[in-house]
Amino acid sequence: MVSKKLNNIIEALSKHSDIDSVRVLNEIGTNSPSDEIRELASKALVKKNIKESLEVVIKNKGKGINDLSARVAMTAINELLALKDKTTATLVLDETINSEIEKEVQDTARSVKALMSFSA
């Protein structure tokens, strides 16, 4: 069970203006063995809605929408679909689909992009 304080720290990092907060969320949050922490970190990175943070949850295998935990992946996808401004997210998804990354990551990005086009 994540403490209230930890929840507040992750939320503060998601709202923080310093770009270094992405690094902290990526290194400590998305690499945590706890599903709950990874879920919160992915959510925070999507909420930041900047290219650097979205790349972490879209392009990396085992993180964000590519997480092995279905719950974490679904939370990240839901958060992406809930974004008001999806421009940056669409751009990152397109980059992922067109880049030479693993096919599995490309497929996931393609599926999420399809969902985003439906929900828009």
Partner: peptide, 22 residues
Amino acid sequence: NTPSRLQKRPVSELEEMFKAEL
């Protein structure tokens, strides 16, 4: 430790707090 107060602190301090809480 409210989010609005925490986000005014430097990221390095938040990183330490994050690690401590983990």
